[in-house]
Design a protein around this nucleic acid. Structure first.
Lengths: 359, 359
DNA sequence: CTGTTAGCGCTTTCAG
DNA sequence: CTGAAAGCGCTAACAG
């Protein structure tokens, strides 16, 4: 037994499908109220549910919003997804989810799949990468997006424009001032921290990571501090943890070495380019018996919700994640001519993890 | 400029649309390799992307999986969503996301929307409630689901059968032995904890919560312990926090009272029916200057990933969340006659938050 | 193996 | 204001 159709409803109400369509689904022209009444009654006596696929085909639009994230279980993406979802609900659209683990190949596939489903707009939350070897895939991704836009689709990208996008029509960029914020963070940290800095970055080539690294270095330089060493690891908790294991050894070694001398080794300040990496790092240090901020200071970036319950309280740069999701979704809802660029604000937030230990 | 169609591809290749369809989209019969070649060439010279809506209409199936959660940013749901997503990818389907904040009304709407989109299957991750006032909405939800199933849809529900579902065709239940696990947890805690127990539950009527409360009480009773007091709060971190604020006062008051007497007050053991509530509770107690497990023991339920980085390490019941998402999605992929019930295993996991303080 | 012919369910001109 | 008719893009019988 298949779901009942508009035609059946129309028949039951004794009207034409066209009329039934006009009363049931939004149309400019309103049929007479007596007719409307009859149709509505027929509809819910049959439990009529419009077939969105058919509607989509006829109207050539789907009421779908495609969302691309690296990993939906990562708190950063989950928060953005929540914002997207909220806004989608306001727009009376549904969210189609795709996870890509950051690969341009997967992103391209996701875009193609969304295009196939005729999604009205696509929100790309994960950051793009220009890692060696990804060149072709990136080109294909850009081509796919361009095509999607040329066919009338709207694309909102969080954090960074798409590499090599040529069609500017239909692109919306929610710009996160990663570099500036990282610079500010560095400046503030430089004021209170007199020792060395180390940067824990994601894979080289990942835009978000690179921007934050660059900004942080600039901030250090402006403060007259020496350039920080940069470590590259996976852009997630594991990457941070892995880096932390090595870092712990290093800290211990340097400490052991200096026990003979008159000076205690300078305390390191580690800037992780995102919070989940910072958490991984902190966990590894803690497992090794080191304490934060006594044995090392740590700062992250994003201010994911998880931080609220993480100890020590982590210094970071607050980003309005849900708002970013909402803004991206909202902007993609209104076709904009030319490339639209929106700014969001972040806020350096210093907490206990970068405080001076009490000596 | 609209996307190019199968017909255009066919024309360019000099074949009929039917043939083009057969080579491009999966069909039993394979056209000759020379023809196939030509069609394929035509297709990607035009950048052809099949219109999934049209395919869906024609095939009457959509390649869509509907996922219903309370809140995608809640780590519990995010983990399940990841599992669903993984399995969906294996099935070459896409995930449609709906968030409902637990309301039966919203769940019903979500099901209707999925039905409209002709989702092949629906996974309901959020637990159902039979709270007073939700009766009508619950009935409607059940009706909507029944209809969906009668029309050939598959529904997988995590944790608890749908209230009042009559059509058994197409229902799949991933059963989480909440009650048993809670009982086991109670038994183990009773062995090491000699003081009072308090249960921090969700809203009365929420199945998952009620089951866990019941199980815990049973476990206590079996251990010869007295029934625990039950607190009801929102089923999320805020609920836990709110409860914690009150609890902190109470603990402090009882302690102050007994300072005059010869006995220190018995330490409380708090069982929160899920981890996010436990975290909220712990946060509130900590803000009030209380320490865990010294001033109170706490246990949660679910073993969400967040716990890995939460201190004190929280005792809980481990649930294979991703696996649950995968299993639900997998089972809903294969139409089962009658109601299918799958079991998942959980594991009581005692950690530091319920340890005996060293006196 | 290929092409022709009907639809899938709905919207939307265009007449009446 | 209503109805009839022509698709939207694709698939699936059924012929050839």
């Amino acid at each position: 037994m298949a779901a009942s159709t508009l035609t059946e409803v129309a028949k039951l109400a004794g009207v034409s499908p066209a009329t039934a369509s006009r009363v049931l689904n939004g149309s400019a022209r309103k049929p007479g109220s007596d007719i409307a009444e009859r149709v509505r009654k027929a509809a819910d006596s049959l439990g009529y549910i419009p077939n969105a696929q058919a509607q989509g085909l006829a109207r050539s639009s789907s009421g779908l919003i495609g969302l691309i994230v690296h990993d939906i279980a990562d708190p950063y993406f989950a928060a953005i997804a929540r914002g997207v979802q909220e806004e989608a609900r306001l727009q009376e659209r549904m969210v189609l989810l795709a996870t890509t683990e950051g690969g341009p190949k997967e992103e391209k596939d996701a875009v193609a799949a969304f295009a196939a489903r005729r999604a009205d707009s696509i929100v790309i939350a994960g950051s793009r990468s220009k890692k060696d070897g990804d060149d072709d895939a990136n080109r294909e991704l850009a081509a796919e997006l361009d095509r999607y836009c040329r066919n009338g689709g709207q694309v909102a990208v969080v954090g960074h424009p798409v590499v090599g996008a040529t069609a500017l029509e239909g692109y919306h960029v929610v710009n996160v001032p990663n570099e500036e914020l990282a610079a500010t963070l560095a400046a503030e940290l430089a004021r209170k921290h007199k020792g060395e800095f180390v940067i824990l970055g994601g894979p080289a080539g990942l835009f978000t990571s690179d921007d934050r690294i660059r900004g942080f270095q600039r901030g250090l330089a402006d403060a007259g501090r020496r350039e920080a060493e940069v470590l590259h690891h996976a852009f997630n908790r594991s990457g941070g943890y892995e880096a932390g294991v090595a870092m712990a050894q290093r800290i211990k070694a340097s400490r052991a070495g200096s026990q003979n001398g008159p000076y205690s080794p300078p305390r390191l300040c580690i800037f992780a380019v995102n919070d989940v990496m910072a958490i991984g790092m902190a966990a590894a240090l803690r497992s090794a018996g080191l304490r934060i901020p006594q044995d090392a200071a740590i700062a992250g970036f994003d201010d994911i919700e998880t931080l609220r319950d993480f100890r020590p309280e982590l210094s970071t740069v607050h980003l309005p994640l849900e708002e970013i999701g909402r803004v991206a979704t909202r902007s993609a809802a209104s076709p904009h001519h030319g490339q639209e660029i929106l700014q969001v604000q972040g806020q350096v937030t210093l907490r206990h993890s970068t405080e001076q230990p009490i000596l």
